[in-house]
C-alpha cells in the first residue's frame, strides 16, 4: 500500500470518519427516503440513503 501521510501517520491512512452522526436538532426528522422506495426491493441497505435535513 501507499505510505500513509495523514496527520503524520505512517501506518494508518484515514479514509473517512467519524461519519456516524446524531440527528440534526437532536431528534430524527424522518424526511429521508424509505430504502425500498429506491432501488432495492429485496435487500435492505440504509447507508446509501441521503439525509434530507
Amino acid at each position: 500500500m501507499d505510505r500513509l501521510t495523514d496527520k503524520g501517520m505512517v501506518h494508518f491512512r484515514q479514509v473517512a470518519g467519524p461519519t456516524l452522526r446524531d440527528p440534526k436538532n437532536g431528534t430524527p426528522c424522518g424526511e429521508c427516503q424509505t430504502s425500498c422506495q429506491s432501488a432495492c426491493k429485496t435487500s435492505c441497505t440504509v447507508a446509501n440513503q441521503p439525509c434530507k435535513s
Binding site: T19, R21, K24, S35, A47, N48
Partner: peptide, 20 residues
Amino acid sequence: FHFEVDLEGGPCLAKRLTGC
C-alpha cells in the same frame, strides 16, 4: 446501488438503527 455507501452525507444514526 449497493457500492455507493455514502460516508459523507449518509443518514443519521436514528435511521441506521431503524432500517427500512
